[in-house]
Computed example of a mutant assay.
Amino acid sequence: MKETFLGVDVCTYTYEQLVAKLMEDIDNNRKSFIVAINPEKIMKAQQDDRLRELLNQATYPIPDGIGVVLASILKRGRIRSRVTGIDMMLRLCQEAAARGKKIFLYGAKPGVADEAKRRLEKMFPGIQIVGTMHGYEKDEQVIKEAINQSGADILFVALGSPAQEYWIANHMHSLSPKVYQGVGGSFDVISGRIKRAPLLVQKLGLEWLYRLLKEPWRWKRQLALPKFLIKVIRE
Rank of each mutant, 00 (worst) to 15 (best):
E3D: 03
T4L: 03
G7M: 09
C11V: 13
T14G: 04
E16K: 14
E16W: 00
V19Q: 02
V19M: 03
V19T: 13
A20C: 07
A20F: 07
A20M: 10
L22V: 05
D27F: 00
N28H: 15
R30C: 05
S32P: 00
S32F: 01
A36C: 13
P39H: 02
E40Y: 12
I42M: 12
M43P: 06
K44V: 00
Q46A: 08
Q47A: 13
R50L: 12
L51K: 09
R52H: 01
E53T: 11
L55K: 08
A58L: 01
A58K: 01
T59H: 11
Y60D: 11
Y60H: 15
D64E: 06
V68Y: 06
I73K: 15
I73W: 14
G77K: 12
I79H: 10
I79G: 05
R80M: 09
R82K: 15
T84I: 04
I86M: 13
L90F: 02
L92R: 05
L92C: 08
C93A: 12
C93R: 02
R99Q: 15
R99I: 00
R99V: 00
G100W: 05
G100S: 09
G100Y: 05
G100D: 09
G100C: 09
K101V: 06
K101I: 07
K102W: 00
I103M: 08
Y106H: 09
G107A: 01
G107I: 01
K109L: 14
P110Y: 08
P110H: 08
V112A: 08
A113T: 05
A113K: 04
D114T: 10
D114A: 14
A116Q: 05
A116S: 11
K117Y: 01
R118W: 00
R118D: 12
R119N: 13
R119A: 07
E121M: 13
K122Y: 06
M123P: 00
Q128V: 03
T132M: 10
T132Q: 11
T132N: 10
M133N: 10
M133I: 12
Y136F: 15
Y136C: 06
K144D: 03
K144R: 15
A146F: 04
I147Y: 04
I147W: 03
N148D: 12
Q149F: 02
Q149T: 14
G151A: 03
G151Q: 03
D153T: 02
D153F: 01
L155K: 02
V157P: 01
L159R: 04
L159H: 04
G160Y: 10
Y166H: 11
Y166E: 12
M172F: 14
Q181S: 14
V183G: 07
G184T: 04
G185M: 04
G185V: 06
S186P: 06
V189H: 00
I190H: 05
I194N: 10
I194L: 15
R196S: 10
P198Y: 03
L200M: 14
L200T: 14
V201Y: 08
K203Q: 15
W208N: 04
L209Q: 05
R211S: 04
R211D: 02
R211K: 13
K214F: 00
E215N: 14
E215D: 14
P216Q: 07
R218C: 05
R218F: 06
W219Y: 15
R221Q: 10
R221W: 01
L223W: 12
L223K: 14
P226A: 10
K227Y: 12
K227D: 11
F228A: 09
V232T: 05
